[in-house]
Amino acid sequence: MTKRKIVQLNRKWHRYLGVILGIQFLLWTLGGLYFSWTNIHEIRGDHLKKNIIIPKPKENLVSPHVFLKSDFKATDSIISLELTTVLNRPVYRVFYTRNGEKKVVLYNADTGNTRPHLTEKEAIKTAMNGLAVNAGVTAVEYLKKAGKHHEYRGRPLPAYAVTFAEPANTTVYVSPEFGNIQTFRSNKWRVFDFLWMLHTMDYAERDNFNNLLLRAFALFGLFTILSGFSLYIFTSRIFAKKTSK
């Protein structure tokens, strides 16, 4: 193949790949600008989260041995047990597996009785207690399922989505089963999540950084860069002078 044909073929591939990849490079750049110019703590809603102080446990709390002995089977596997608070009351949160399924149960630390799941009113109160600013509730939704593109994806279900007005302007997700706030979601986070999907090119689940489409575009991008270098070499005067000599 002659030098002229190589240059023509390179220019053709470089031009078409440049148009296709240029769109994705623009999206990557826009995403990178947003990621680098925004405060990640504000995106996560850390500035809206109230620092909850867990009180020191009282001496007369029920021993976990009481309910561990009576409520769990020999085949159950206890993953963890923690002392926490739910609506300012001491509670034991027990994570365990039964028949290969991971479960969680709450116990009233004062009585040793099972603590029921949070009601809607309790979930709203939990969300309000965890919010660092005063804001009114605009909507409450009970989620039984969340799709792959939902902002609450990959977290415990069911859950209450408690949406607050300004100045919070955010949705607080509360797990009735866990008895706590799972996450905060604001408009800044939603923009971040959308740009992250464009950045990873995972249009199915948004979080897979090893998908085939991203790998293909990375390889095509490398090929486009190399073809640009080769065009410079083949068409530069310096290279032409050296070959003529």
Rank of each mutant, 00 (worst) to 15 (best):
V104W: 01
D110V: 03
H41P: 01
A216T: 15
V172I: 13
K3T: 11
E177M: 09
F95M: 09
W28H: 04
A123E: 02
H199K: 05
R115E: 14
L222Y: 05
T126Q: 10
R89D: 13
M201Q: 10
E59I: 14
N88T: 14
R185N: 02
T85E: 13
G228P: 00
F229R: 04
W196E: 01
K49C: 00
L212C: 06
A165F: 05
K69A: 09
V91D: 03
E205M: 11
I40S: 05
L68H: 09
I79N: 15
H47W: 07
P156A: 09
D202C: 04
G147A: 10
N51I: 06
F239T: 05
F217P: 05
L87D: 13
T126S: 08
E151I: 03
G45V: 00
L87T: 04
G22V: 06
L214T: 06
A204V: 15
V19I: 15
N187F: 08
N169T: 14
L118S: 06
H14R: 09
Y96G: 12
S80P: 00
P167V: 08
M201I: 10
I23K: 07
E122D: 10
E177Q: 12
R215K: 15
F35V: 00
L81V: 10
Q8V: 11
G136I: 10
T111E: 05
R190I: 14
A123T: 08
M128D: 14
T200E: 04
R190S: 11
F184A: 01
R206H: 14
L214K: 01
E122S: 13
K56M: 11
G130W: 02
G179C: 04
P156Y: 07
F234N: 02
S227C: 06
R98P: 03
F217E: 12
